[in-house]
Amino acid sequence: MQAFVKTLTGKTITLEVEPSDTIENVKAKIQDKEGIPPDQQRLIFAGKQLEDGRTLSDYNIQKESTLHLVLR
C-alpha cells in the first residue's frame, strides 16, 4: 500500500509499505529515499510519536495515510 510522509519543509515522500511493517522498517525506507539516518527520524501520526517496535497496523495506519517526519 502507499503511505505518505510529510517533512517539515513541506516535501511529501511516497512510500510503499505494508500494514505489518514496523516503524523501524518505515524509517529504513525513508533513509533509502532521503538519506536521513533512522536515529534522527521521529514519525508522528494522529499527534502520537510512533515507536520503532510497533507496526503500522498497531497504529491503525491505512493506505494513503500521511505520517509527519520530524528530525531530532
Score class of each variant (00 low, 15 high):
K27S: 01
L50E: 01
S65Y: 08
N25R: 14
L71R: 08
A46W: 09
D58K: 02
E34Y: 07
T14F: 09
V70W: 10
I13A: 02
I44R: 06
N60H: 09
S57L: 11
I36K: 02
S65G: 07
I44E: 10
K48V: 14
E64N: 15
T22Y: 08
V70M: 11
P38K: 14
L56Y: 02
V5T: 01
G10K: 04
Q31V: 04
E18F: 14
K6T: 12
L50K: 00
E16V: 12
G47W: 04
N60L: 08
E24Q: 13
Q41A: 04
G53L: 08
T7F: 15
S20R: 09
E64S: 10
S65C: 07
G10I: 02
T55L: 08
L56I: 09
E24H: 12
K11Y: 13
D32T: 11
K6H: 14
M1N: 04
T66M: 09
T22H: 04
Q40G: 06
Q41K: 01
Q31H: 14
A46G: 12
S20H: 11
D52K: 04
K27T: 02
G10Y: 03
K48L: 12
G47D: 06
I61W: 06
Q31F: 15
V70L: 13
D58Q: 08
K27F: 03
V17I: 07
L56N: 01
T66C: 08
T55R: 11
E18Q: 13
S20C: 10
N25D: 12
E18N: 13
H68L: 15
I30D: 00
K6G: 03
L56G: 00
Q40R: 13
D32S: 12
A46I: 06
V17K: 00
T55K: 11
L15Y: 01
V70S: 08
E16N: 12
V17E: 00
L50Q: 01
V26S: 00
G47P: 01
L56D: 01
K33M: 11
H68E: 10
K48E: 13
K6F: 06
R54P: 04
R42T: 15
T14D: 05
N60A: 08
K48D: 06
V70K: 08
Q31G: 07
K33I: 14
A46S: 08
E18D: 11
R42G: 06
P37L: 07
T55D: 03
Q40Y: 10
L69W: 01
G53C: 07
I23F: 02
L15W: 01
L8R: 12
A28E: 10
L50D: 00
L50S: 00
L43Y: 02
I13P: 00
A28T: 09
P37A: 09
F4N: 06
E24P: 02
D52F: 04
G10S: 04
F45A: 03
E51A: 08
I13M: 05
K33D: 03
K6R: 10
T22N: 04
R42L: 15
T14H: 08
I23K: 00
I23S: 02
R54T: 07
N60Q: 09
K11N: 07
A46Y: 09
R54I: 05
K48Q: 14
G53I: 07
T7V: 08
E34D: 05
A46N: 15
H68Y: 15
P37G: 05
K27G: 01
G53W: 13
I30H: 00
T22K: 09
E16M: 13
L50T: 03
T14E: 09
D32P: 02
D58I: 03
E64R: 07
V5D: 02
D32F: 12
L50I: 04
V26A: 02
K27P: 00
R72G: 11
E16P: 04
I44N: 05
Q49A: 12
I13F: 11
L8V: 14
E51H: 09
A28N: 11
T55V: 06
R54A: 08
